[in-house]
Design a protein around this nucleic acid. Sequence first.
DNA 1: CGCGGCTTTGATGTTCATCAAGTAAAGTGG
DNA 2: CCACTTTACTTGATGAACATCAAAGCCGCG
Lengths: 228, 228
Amino acid sequence: MPNSCNCTNCELRSAFFESFKEVQQSIICDEKIEVAYSPSQTVFKVGDTVKYFFYLKSGLVKLFKTDREGNDQIITIASPFDFVSLLGVFSETHHSYSVSAIEDSVVCCIGIDRMKSIAQQNSLFSMNLMERLGAISNKIIQESLEIRKRNAHGKVAYILLKFSEEIYQNSVFNLPLSRREIAEYIGITTESVIRIFSEFRKEKLIRINGKEIEILNEETLEKISKYG
Amino acid sequence: MPNSCNCTNCELRSAFFESFKEVQQSIICDEKIEVAYSPSQTVFKVGDTVKYFFYLKSGLVKLFKTDREGNDQIITIASPFDFVSLLGVFSETHHSYSVSAIEDSVVCCIGIDRMKSIAQQNSLFSMNLMERLGAISNKIIQESLEIRKRNAHGKVAYILLKFSEEIYQNSVFNLPLSRREIAEYIGITTESVIRIFSEFRKEKLIRINGKEIEILNEETLEKISKYG
DNA sequence: CGCGGCTTTGATGTTCATCAAGTAAAGTGG
DNA sequence: CCACTTTACTTGATGAACATCAAAGCCGCG
């Protein structure tokens, strides 16, 4: 029964099932599970067996690794429509990073074996999948280079602009990450994040009210992001 | 004519054509071009149109980006059997990074449209492709996190061990990168690389003779790499 | 209500970048 | 093939950027 499932209008379809035959689409629709997560809840952890292919339907999640001393490194933030499963999903049996929600989120889960067998039967689908997975991995790599080449001020400006322009598309937003998580994302210390936030506030580049941030001077922040 | 091409024993076959029907394999064998590069020669540049899928048959190449001030950032070093084309190859029309040889290298080039149409016809092939591309992208992301979390000494130790253990599998090797390139790879300055090399030499952890390096005390280097 | 985690600020110190200068090596043109 | 230029390498001196350590206020939660 095509279109009988509740995801007929799901973004997931337009996002990457465009090339899909309806019968297969409905198989996926019937078999997928939707799971809701509250902030700080874990979707999966490093080392967990790869059982599902994950897709973020709504909300915001962080991908991260924890080292032996318990320090986290945030790899990236995934927004709605993003695949939470990266490329390793088809080549690895265990996850090489952890995922947890940083906002109320809904994740679609499709059995990985099911995904594989469908991909093997439908090469158009697997090409689409490859393109989308490729785009995400590329984005992570490029972003990591962008962050790496900046000094602390540039890193903070970059991340503020990312949240404002890319994620929330609004000059006012609620920062979904703690100061510590920001630090873990851009590779500086929590204190430095706070100090630079304060400087930006004193220079009237941003307004801060707890987690609420407003970008007041985007132009100057762009400059700081570009030229440190 | 299966097996009529000169790459019957090519690593490329065992590497990812295992699932390939012979007739298609020979199409690829017939159509591929092998190009040899000397150190410092460019395979392709940021912004170039994606025309080929590239595979490293032998040698060593670097993937890197150049910013507006002309400073390079090395993304990774590709070894034989590695795909030089990353995942973006199917989703992007222009390369987002540059590639140049750092040793005498031979690169196999296959028309990208040809690859795409074959992948669309053969889903087993496209799955294989996806797995391999995924593994490489994952490796780049993981390595970048590893480097990021270390201090300067740890970074240098890490990179020395990478060359020794992973790339050359030998405690003596000729460093294929200049001091500057090492710096561009791990995100510190050239002077710091040199200084830390000198310290390691004075502490008898390594022996340096120009480009020739010998790892003398792997154990201590491992410790420095792990604990900074 | 008290404990632990998050945030903030200040004082201090280390690490590493920057600047400068000199040597060695490698490419370039007459 | 040699003078010349350029690039790579090396060391030292200096300072800025950022981490670390310490302490206190704040908030949420059991």
